[in-house]
Amino acid sequence: MTALPSGLSWLEASARQRLAALLDPGSFAEFIGPEQRERSPHLRLFDLPEQFDDGMIVGRATLCRTPVLVAAQEGRFMGGAFGEVHGAKLTGLLRAAALLGRDVLILFDTGGVRLQEANAGELAISEIMRAIVDLRRAGNRVIGLIGGRAGCYGGGGLIAGCCSALIVSEQGRISVSGPEVIETNKGVEEFDSRDRALVWRTMGGKHRYLIGGADGYVADDPAAFRAATQSALGRSPGLDLSMLHAEHQRLTRRLARFGNARDGTDVWSTLGIADPDAIPGLADDDFRHLADACREVADDAR
């Protein structure tokens, strides 16, 4: 792969550009590359275009000379959604990581499960979640990087919840039900999906970092993602029952503390932020400085 000029936007970059800019130059070796044409067997039934890698790029590489396995979703192909092949490539990568004893990086960019192959996609999500838990219990890390256009929604949000650590940019969004889904099911009074500022106040990178839903907050820049990933690779791995108990207690506290909040600004106010309305406009460094003084601590178990 080729090195790219610095100043590349993570949000705007393709999955292959992100990999090239994130990993050590020339270190990426792809598994089941596009030349193998391992495409979705379902899309042709709907007369829909296919992509040679099915929107999922997997392989091995090094990051700051640490060997890792890595997966990247192409959010512009079918919204980065999980289908049979797309999901199987990630499941296989995670199982290979368990055999090799490697940490895994997942560059999320997904709306969730592909509607055209929903059963296969849902099965893939559960297989991936199980594979992550197995890998983490064996003492390896799974680090999620979130800052793409599609965000990290649906089953992708569930998978992110299983990771050892999440790194997010302001542009990144993390949730299970997306804005349109909530509005459709609960009405516009509950959530106005066209209010983009509301979407970011409740699902965006700044909010997720403040409530402890993400471990690292970075600028929209591959170099920033790279530095934060290197740092996350240095943290102690592991997953056991006591961590899960601690995590459940943290989530119980979160619900008690913020359960009545109607908006992200209510949450930020409760956190002790004097001017919550100013949060969306803060520059990345100013925001991180403020957030680190009052944010809920993220937890290894999510």
């Binding site: 393709s14 596009p34 030349e35 992509q51 040679f52 890698d53 192909f77």
Partner: peptide, 18 residues
């Protein structure tokens, strides 16, 4: 031996060269 560029999206395309 090969190169790939682009993504399959509305108004876009991917080209695989071998």
């Amino acid at each position: 031996r090969q190169a790939i560029i682009g993504v399959v999206a509305s108004g876009n395309l991917e080209v695989l060269a071998e």
